[in-house]
Design a protein around this nucleic acid. Structure first.
Lengths: 217, 217
DNA sequence: AGATGTGAAAGTTTTCACAGCC
DNA sequence: GGCTGTGAAAACTTTCACATCT
């Protein structure tokens, strides 16, 4: 099996979401074309992405919705539940703890950590916020699969190191800086500031829409 | 000027952050190599990215930190302030309103909207949450530059359409679905579920780190 | 006819490597 | 010696187009 690109994996995640929807709507079969248009990509892209993992469709017919969904589910590793710990229970960390949407996809928030004594001990979404010093107790020996870093920038690398030291192998970093982790640890960074700034760039550099009349001719 | 790729713009945003830091630390000059290593890219990449916009360095010396920062600032359109409206004041929307980090970069949250009467009228971070019906009053005639969609999935496309209708030209979508907007509107989507699922994929498919001893030989 | 799966082609992004300047 | 700026090469990703199957 050839190497799988990150874009392909991201699209699989999108396809999975579409398939959930289509299945809920009662759809039995779906063509690569219909699957594609619901995510704004081409049908060839859908077929290429899927072909990295096998042949899931039937020529002339398309894909069985339930079957394809189950296949992608297995590919993405969503057949099991993942234990997630959130570090940094500020505004964003709190929002993530209260948002229950991830549970639906197999991600259980099972622990919350902060360094601030004012926050430690508080209960949020059914979990007691623990001191960051207790991370090894909770995360050691496979207690946590994934760590979410929602701390201020200054603490982020240090927290990442601590998570890695405890054996956490996947990290979602929400602090506005790329972090350094060993090869065997998967890291995704979501940096809202970058998103805002790319929008700023686009608005600054892309032409505004043509008007029927330009003011002052 | 040749077309600028989105990756290049994202990296510029990262370089900008590094330059802010280096300037604060008192650095005067920086080489593409040092700039690169702080963001985990290659020095050739840095030079190529910058060369899309001009020649900002001096051979044999490197880049003047303050000057390069100012150049990137202008390129990204951060020389002005942007008026941001947040739609959907749930957990995530609330977190974004309370997080003041974007102001520093020129993004002022000037309005908040929700549909739920229980939320409308509440004050958050110095702003009164308004009914979504008032969007045209606030956003019309350039009142809003950017819209953030932090609503549930079902409402997201509808909100996007409303924002576009009011003349908003940049949208940050936090709902877990790609949205459709006209060509002239810039859209970025941040989908946490996709991030979690790519981590799940990585942990499922990437080999765990080699151990000194494999259990049971 | 209608749709998949896939090599080949086209397009895009990254890296290389070196001329040119400090 | 050190470093930028940049064409050319390499690597990667997407699209095309068609043989193959229902």
């Amino acid at each position: 099996m050839t190497r799988i690109s990150e874009s392909t994996v991201r699209r699989l995640s999108h396809y999975y979401r579409v398939l959930e929807e289509v299945e809920a709507e009662g759809g039995r079969l779906i063509s690569s074309h219909r699957l594609a248009e619901r995510e704004g990509v081409t049908s060839a892209q859908v077929r290429k992405d899927l072909s990295c993992f096998g042949s899931f469709g039937r020529r002339g017919l398309g894909y069985n919705v339930a079957h394809l969904r189950q296949e992608i589910r297995a590919i993405l590793g969503l057949d099991r539940r993942w234990r997630v710990g959130i570090v940094g229970i500020g505004n964003l960390g709190t929002a993530l703890m209260l948002y229950r949407g991830f549970e639906q996809q197999g991600f259980d928030v099972v622990a919350a950590f902060d360094r601030d004594p004012a926050r430690v001990g508080r209960t949020l979404g059914g979990l007691v916020v623990r001191d960051i010093a207790e991370l090894p107790l909770v995360a050691g020996d496979g207690g946590l699969d994934l760590g979410v870093i929602a701390t201020p920038l200054k603490a982020a690398q240090e927290v990442a190191d601590a998570l890695v030291a405890c054996g956490v192998r996947g990290i979602l970093n929400l602090a506005p800086r790329k972090l350094f982790v060993p090869e065997h640890v998967a890291l995704r960074t979501v940096d809202m500031t970058v998103e805002f700034e790319t929008l700023s760039f686009a608005l600054t550099n892309l032409a505004p829409p043509a008007r029927r009349r330009r003011p002052r001719g």
